[in-house]
Computed example of a mutant assay.
Amino acid sequence: MNAILCQQYGPPETLRLTEVPEPQPAAGQVLIGVNACGVNFPDTLIIEGKYQVKPPMPFAPGGEVAGRVLSVGEGVTTLKPGDHVFALTGYGGFAEQVVAHATTTLPMPAGMDFVTAASTMYTYGTSYHALKDRANLQAGETLLVLGAAGGVGLAALQLGVLMGARVIAAASSEEKLAVCRELGASETINYTTEDLRTRVNELTGGKGVDVVYDPVGDRFAEPAVRSLAWRGRYLVVGFAAGSIPSIPLNLALLKGASIVGVFWGAFAQREPKRSRQNFEQLLQWITTGQLKQHIHKQYLLADAPVALRDLLDRKVIGKAVVIIDTP
């Protein structure tokens, strides 16, 4: 089978399309013929050795897939060959076949296409866990989303609106902010031309925001924390800007605020029952049309390195997906 392999740590341009042996499922695993694989920021980290998970070389990036079950390992009774599924794999998804744990593989609802399924887990799974389980976001509260035009950012924006919050979207261009407004943002901030803290203060009448969703980090983190209201919650989702910021902890003290970590992948593995309950709600919203992923572009398997480069260069608005022509 064909796979995009990382054979040494480096940028996307070092990845190569290579023929490799077909994997076999062990006990508790399923073998999936991949039809689509989502492109996510952790994929750019894992190929440079900067992610908390370091697979043995060589490996294929790609952490979420959708496709058909080809075979199941010993002890798997909930899935069978031929089932349409989507799965959290961590890595290995930029390939024609991948092995996944049955506990992190879910049946696709009737009528859902592979592209939608492959763009659901990381973005909506992360953002719903963040807003529901970690921030306890309530209707009527104000939510500030940084990096709001990215995959997880747009998911957080849509979910915030669905959960009854007033959503302020912050992003780096007017093109990106236009998409945010289309998807329900009440107000927007261009943080390349506007001062983030000043604009939040103006938009909230000096009160501040109840929740900050931050997948960006770097220089925006401290002004975002300073923009919290009393008992606000700052969600640490990721560091897409590159640098891990240092936060003066006296800010949390003065605001009675919480700085809350969000590691959805660990949550899905450690608390699979609660994770599945979250997905039941998400899938209901998706199948009824209340949530709809914004697909930036579909890439062929051979062009997966280009997809990763576009993500790194901040060209992707919403979600990029790699399409695999599985036999």
Score class of each variant (00 low, 15 high):
1 M>I: 07
2 N>G: 01
26 A>E: 14
27 A>W: 06
28 G>L: 10
32 I>T: 00
44 T>F: 03
50 K>E: 12
60 A>K: 13
63 G>N: 15
67 G>V: 07
80 K>M: 09
86 F>T: 03
91 Y>V: 03
92 G>K: 05
105 T>I: 04
114 F>L: 13
114 F>M: 14
115 V>A: 15
117 A>Q: 06
119 S>P: 03
127 S>D: 08
127 S>W: 00
135 A>G: 05
138 Q>P: 03
148 A>L: 10
150 G>T: 12
150 G>Y: 02
156 A>G: 09
159 L>D: 06
160 G>L: 11
162 L>G: 03
174 E>K: 14
176 K>Q: 11
176 K>Y: 04
178 A>K: 15
186 S>H: 15
189 I>V: 13
194 E>G: 04
194 E>I: 10
199 R>Q: 15
200 V>A: 03
206 G>I: 08
210 D>W: 09
213 Y>N: 01
214 D>V: 03
218 D>Q: 10
220 F>V: 15
226 R>V: 01
248 P>W: 14
250 N>F: 15
257 A>Q: 13
261 G>N: 01
266 A>D: 08
267 F>I: 05
275 S>E: 02
278 N>A: 05
279 F>H: 00
284 Q>Y: 12
286 I>D: 07
290 Q>R: 15
294 H>R: 14
295 I>P: 05
295 I>G: 07
295 I>C: 10
305 P>T: 00
307 A>Y: 00
311 L>S: 00
318 G>C: 06
319 K>M: 12
327 P>N: 14
